[in-house]
Structures are given as structure tokens and as C-alpha cells.
């Protein structure tokens, strides 16, 4: 029997792994990739809750709102990656490296 708790635990593991990737990498593209993994874990949790609360009396729109929100997260993630990669290209053109430590002018 498929349990919601198991699926939520999978989402938690993926999220934590993504956080580890964000914290442990220096390459800007690797940071962005790990960020995508975290967003994906959130999507899994959203779809799980959508499936869990899709019982009687919710209606079609209520039952699918979690899936709709997942689609919104995907769209926002796509926009975020577009902007992020453009910033990485700009940083690389200026610094000749995609290392996150190179762009530290605002460090103070």
C-alpha cells in the first residue's frame, strides 16, 4: 500500500540533498542545479497532498489545485533558471570564471 508519509519522506530526502548540493558547491551552475532539485522535491510534496485531499466533496477544482500549483512552480522555476543562467553568463564574461567566490564585491 502506497503511503503518503513515505512519499513525503522521499520529498524530504530530495530537498535535503538539494540543500547539501547548494551548500557544498562553488560552481554557480551546480548551485542552480541543486536549487532545481529542491524545487522538484517541493513539487512531489504538493502532488502528494493534492492526491491525499482529492476525496469526495472537494470538487474538481479543489482536488486539482495542488497539481495546478505544481505547474506554477514549474513555470517560475523555468523563469528562474533563465535569469540565473543569464546572470552566470554575465558573471563569466566579466570574471572569466563561474566560481561563486569570484563575485564577492558586495561582501563588504
Amino acid at each position: 500500500m502506497l503511503e503518503p508519509k513515505v512519499v513525503l519522506f522521499l520529498a524530504a530526502v530530495l530537498f535535503s540533498a538539494g540543500l547539501y548540493g547548494v551548500l557544498s558547491r562553488r560552481h554557480l551552475i551546480m548551485l542552480l542545479m541543486s536549487l532545481e532539485l529542491m524545487l522538484n522535491a517541493v513539487n512531489i510534496a504538493l502532488v502528494t497532498f493534492s492526491r491525499y485531499w482529492a476525496g469526495e466533496g472537494v470538487g474538481m477544482i479543489g482536488a486539482h489545485s495542488g497539481q495546478f500549483f505544481t505547474l506554477m512552480v514549474m513555470a517560475v522555476a523555468a523563469a528562474e533558471v533563465g535569469i540565473g543562467l543569464a546572470i552566470i553568463v554575465a558573471v563569466y564574461r566579466r570574471k572569466h570564471t563561474a566560481d561563486s567566490d569570484a563575485a564577492s564585491e558586495l561582501k563588504g
Binding site: R26, H27, I29, E36, M74, A77, V81, V89, A98
Partner: peptide, 28 residues
């Protein structure tokens, strides 16, 4: 299906493009 089209299709290709544009070595 949207996951495969958007993430595995479009985003991965975009990441690959920028990986090829930039130097993949870090300061380490």
C-alpha cells in the same frame, strides 16, 4: 509529462548550453 518536457527537456538543454559556454573549473 510536463515534468519530462520542461525539466528533462528544456531546462537540461539550457544547463548544458551554459556549461559549454563557461569554464567548469572552480577556484579549488
Amino acid at each position: 509529462v510536463s515534468q519530462i518536457i520542461i525539466y528533462a527537456g528544456a531546462l537540461a538543454v539550457m544547463f548544458l548550453f551554459v556549461l559549454m559556454f563557461t569554464d567548469t573549473r572552480t577556484q579549488d
